[in-house]
Nucleic acid binder design. Structure first.
Lengths: 198, 198
DNA sequence: ATAACAAACTAACATACGTTAGCGACAAAT
DNA sequence: ATTTGTCGCTAACGTATGTTAGTTTGTTAT
């Protein structure tokens, strides 16, 4: 019988969740079947249910895991005593790093949350809305302090978050630049803009 | 018997494709069923097959419709005799306008192309890759002419395209700013950057 | 060694899905 | 008025999916 391999201090459930992230990323939540997942774990489909309650639970786990990390980080940043513009840059770098190093989970959380079902769905949407509002608030503080160009803050947030989710393409591309080069290029473009400083 | 309503010069197939775009956008390709689509068209599921060959054909239609429009546009822009930086801005504005006015199709083409099957899948991926290369080439021309900050051009393209796909959030948001305001804000942020010009 | 528990298996169910076959109803052309 | 072709309907098929029940195997603790 083929047991699920677990490194120390990693539950079998966590192994399943991790494999699910990979699968959901490459096929999408709906198109990825429990039998696919079972195969990638090395076990029969029914056996998964010794460790998880349902397919949707896997999605919960992934979405809220990611959401919680971002929430925690923005709270830390909010409380630092530094200029708002620096807070923005810190958040951007955090987003970039999350996308680079926890690619699958972040990607799935970003694109597949629609398939959550209530009450988790509304809960997730709320958290998302709140996060963006708080991010926008930081930008607006920066604008009032003349650290940041007077732009529409919600639009800026929307651009930032989606721009960073584009790291997906970087992950898949053949000739990757290094992760640090990527991070710095992104910050340059997003923060400094396209045209040369005079 | 409930016939599919068609305004003049619009085939029933086009009506179905348009409804499919809406449905695929809100549920995702896999989660949207032919029975859902039938209901939104006002007809039984089997009746759809008098007008289309398969569910996947609907996705082809949408993806390649969008891809062709972008390809045509970039060819026009390439041939204009204007500075590269202006070409970039023209392309950005085109992307923004497409996303604002053909929301559903563009969104579906962007997120659901994975569910195409070969040979359409490889074909689509190719077009996509080529498009991005040509976009990057324009940026690189601009860099050599000192019109554009020396950045990694592929990264810039990736940021632009994904940033613009964020207009999705604008479409769904309650308190929308106007489409023109959105366009100008996006151009400002993407092109001029976040910090004030000195 | 044996009891007790965790975790795998086989078999199966109910449901949902894409799609086909065949028939009847309406519209347009003769 | 009759024919012809378009378009919609009902019924159904085959397959895939998430999940449950019940059983067997392997591991851990006494």
């Amino acid at each position: 019988m083929a047991r699920i391999k677990t490194d120390n201090n990693v539950s079998r459930k966590e192994v399943i969740v991790a494999k699910a992230a990979i699968l959901f990323r490459e096929k999408g939540f709906k198109a990825a079947s429990m039998r696919d997942l079972a195969e990638s774990v090395g076990v029969e489909a029914a056996s998964l249910y010794n460790h998880i309650k349902s397919k949707t639970e896997l999605l919960h786990e992934l979405c809220f895991g990611v959401a919680n990390r971002f929430m925690q980080r923005i709270e830390e940043v909010e409380q630092e005593k530094i200029p708002a513009a620096e807070k923005v840059e810190k958040l951007l770098r955090f987003h970039i790093n999350e996308m680079v190093h926890h690619y699958e989970e972040v990607y799935v959380s970003d694109r597949e949350w629609k398939h959550l079902s209530d009450p988790y769905l509304s809960n997730f949407q709320n958290q998302r809305r709140i996060y963006r509002k708080r991010f926008a608030a930081i930008i607006e503080t920066g604008i009032r302090a003349n650290e940041i160009e007077p732009i529409d803050a919600p639009t800026a947030v929307l651009i930032f978050l989606h721009a960073i989710s584009g790291i997906e393409s970087w992950h898949r591309s053949k000739q990757k630049i290094s992760a640090e080069a990527l991070e710095n290029n992104m910050i340059t473009i997003l923060v400094d803009g396209l045209y040369p400083r005079k």
